[in-house]
Write a protein that binds this DNA or RNA. Structure first.
Lengths: 240, 240
DNA sequence: GCAAAAGTGTTGTCCTTACACCCATGC
DNA sequence: GCATGGGTGTAAGGACAACACTTTTGC
């Protein structure tokens, strides 16, 4: 290394960082659920007067010594009372004017949970589940964030077994198919759908049957996450 | 809406945001290139004494009224002199101790460019191209960021025509195949590879041939981005 | 017994894979 | 003329798409 390099070495990293500009940083969670054969998202009314009546994602500031994932976990825990929820970072949004109160950068998270597993505890600000399809305007850039997370979900659900997070532990194949059809917004052939999932061999027949249905009850299955993890294939293909 | 809601409405958004905690925010660019049939990444020596001798990604703070994409563009322009470079946000990294100078959140970008298109202008801090495969330790959490961007690239290149950003405008099929083999770390069958790309019908025969090769020269092709954009297919399938 | 959904197989088509020989050029 | 990589075709196997009838249960 040339001597000239050493001269410019920075010894005091703390001093260096102190000179950096700072921004307000938040997380916003797009929390998806599945009910009545429709994809739902958990929203509250915005508490900003500017956005009076508009719907808003669940979010919060990132605390001083908190990682982004932890902040998103915390938002989820505070709002739904649930831990160990499927939660993935999707994208940062940084439009300078995205918040009327000033410069706020936000990191969007996509979360999937089973609506039936929990009752909403705190229903401040009309917290409740909204049908994704019929959702129009939202506060801030939250519609844009929702759209990004929805696209993300549509893509991911075709490549990874995320969908099971939206269903009860035990589910019928009809429910599973309804889930895929709702999320992907397509109709699928029932026989081919079943063949596909059976051939993947990750479904476990629980031996139980649906109850409270007005017709022939379907078998209930569980997803074998362990088996899936062990057999993840490395796919090589070119397709675009 | 119940009356109780109105009471809690926030009128002064600016005041609200002023109360939010702030963090230091940076962008880091993983700039990939392709040369000598190897995937390369553009790095500098860290200028922090703590990381003396270690390699570091190209990054910078995000300015006060600057979007993340713009900050990444700026880093690229400053370091390579290039604009209109392929550049996508990949992921935010927020480990509390990831920077020795204090809490710094960074957003990673993946960038693809054609090494031949530009000579490195400023070679401060030993800026230069590194073979990805042989890269071990790096400053900060930059190895982790690089790995994340590399995985992202491996996945994306199979689904979208990104690879062409790493090649000259006109390229031979051999070069294209070498690119895929290097990035995916596999060997591909030459005949099947050619068939695949020809059947997609996005390659335009320029009528030109390779020069300066010691054997029969191959045809040079261009990628037809317009045609690709127009025929993007919506793929529905379940596969995991 | 009827309504409603569960459950099941086959066939044709297409895509993927594996594989070997001749061709054009530089030296 | 020989070494080097360019260029091409075919056949087999596997995945996917299309399609209809019987079975079980609730009422």
């Amino acid at each position: 290394m040339p001597a000239s390099q050493k001269v410019t070495m920075i010894q005091d990293a703390v001093q260096l960082v102190k000179g950096y500009p700072q921004v307000h940083l938040t997380v916003d969670c797009v929390i998806f659920g599945f009910d009545e054969n429709k994809l739902k998202v958990l929203l509250i009314r915005s508490d900003l007067e500017t956005y009076q009546g508009k719907w808003s994602l669940l979010g919060d500031v990132v605390h001083e010594n908190e990682e982004l994932d932890a902040a998103a976990d915390r938002v989820l825990l505070e709002r739904t009372g649930m831990t160990n929820v499927y939660l993935k970072q999707v994208q940062a949004f940084s439009r300078v004017d995205r918040h009327p109160g000033g410069r706020v950068v936000t990191v969007a998270y996509c979360s999937l949970l089973n609506i039936r597993d929990h009752e909403l505890q705190i229903t401040d600000n009309e917290l409740h589940w909204h049908t994704v399809k019929t959702l129009k305007e939202m506060a801030f850039d939250h519609k844009e964030i929702l759209d990004a997370c929805y696209s993300w979900l549509q893509k991911r659900i075709q490549e990874h077994p995320l969908g099971f997070n939206l269903l009860p532990e035990k589910f019928s194949l009809r429910e599973l198919q309804n889930l895929y059809e709702a999320i992907l917004n397509v109709e699928l052939d029932r026989r081919n759908f079943r063949k596909k999932f059976f051939s993947m061999d990750f479904l476990v027949d629980t031996g139980e049957l649906e109850t409270d249905v007005k017709h022939r009850p379907g078998k209930l299955y569980q997803f074998n996450f362990d088996k899936y993890e062990k057999s993840k294939r490395k796919w090589i293909g070119i397709d675009f």
